[in-house]
Simulated scan of single mutants.
Amino acid sequence: MGIYPADIEHQAAAIIAAYRDLGWMLATAESCTGGLIAGALTEIAGSSAVVDRGFVTYTNQAKMDLIGVSATTLEVFGAVSKETALQMAHGALMRSDAEVAVAVTGIAGPGGGSVEKPVGLVHLALKTRSGLIDHREMRYGEIGRDQVRLATVETALEMLTAAVQAPA
């Protein structure tokens, strides 16, 4: 067993196999997970055939500089928003050789939440070059920082799996 729980490793291995079979590469853009999604995927031997790159964009400045999130989006909607997650996925896709990009931004806690954006709120977005767009707003609750981050990894892997299964 590696660094990640067995269910995450199994899911990551299935994604690596499915994407490799299709000849697809993927990219990640991560804020609250700090690279854990890319880490889970690269835990799998042979993942270099599938994982093109990962962007850890923890600050707003990094989101703007590395993956082109607009300052206006961040000012109007905030870093933890559907709009920011969608721009993160788009930016990661456009700045990579990937067919699919997944992005996450959220509040892992224990602090930093508000009534409108509580601890455990995470926005995930996925975009493909063929035009598929997926967004999920997850409210994991105050289950602890590590658990919010791992739950986010699981949801992101579910989205990457669904992208392979979607009709072309």
Rank of each mutant, 00 (worst) to 15 (best):
T155S: 14
V164R: 14
A125K: 03
T128A: 13
Y19H: 12
G78I: 02
M138D: 03
A71T: 05
N60L: 03
G120R: 03
L121P: 01
H123Q: 04
V80H: 02
G46V: 14
D52C: 13
L36T: 00
L86H: 05
T161V: 09
S48L: 11
R53L: 07
M88S: 13
V102N: 03
E83Q: 15
I44E: 08
G39N: 11
R145D: 03
A12C: 08
S31F: 01
T28V: 12
W24E: 06
E142P: 04
K117C: 03
E30V: 00
T84F: 04
A85V: 11
E154N: 08
A62Y: 03
A71G: 12
G35C: 09
V119D: 02
S47K: 15
A18T: 10
Q165Y: 01
V115L: 15
V104E: 15
D134Y: 07
A45T: 15
A13H: 04
E116V: 08
Q11V: 02
D146I: 00
K117T: 06
I107N: 01
A156D: 05
E83G: 05
V164G: 14
V69M: 08
R139Q: 08
T33Q: 04
G131K: 11
K127D: 03
T155E: 13
G144Y: 03
S81Q: 10
V148F: 00
A14F: 02
A162D: 09
L121K: 06
M25A: 13
L132Y: 03
A12Y: 05
F55N: 11
L26Y: 05
R149H: 00
V51I: 15
P167I: 08
A168D: 07
G54I: 12
G39E: 06
D65V: 04
G2C: 10
R20D: 14
M88G: 11
G106Q: 01
I107L: 05
D146S: 04
Q87G: 12
L132A: 07
P5A: 12
L157P: 01
E154H: 10
Q11C: 08
E158F: 02
K63W: 03
G46Y: 12
V164P: 01
H123I: 02
D21M: 07
M88H: 11
L66P: 00
L160M: 14
L41E: 01
L26C: 15
A92C: 12
M94R: 09
L132I: 06
F77S: 08
L86T: 05
K117G: 03
Q61D: 10
C32R: 01
K117N: 09
Q147I: 00
I3W: 08
A156M: 09
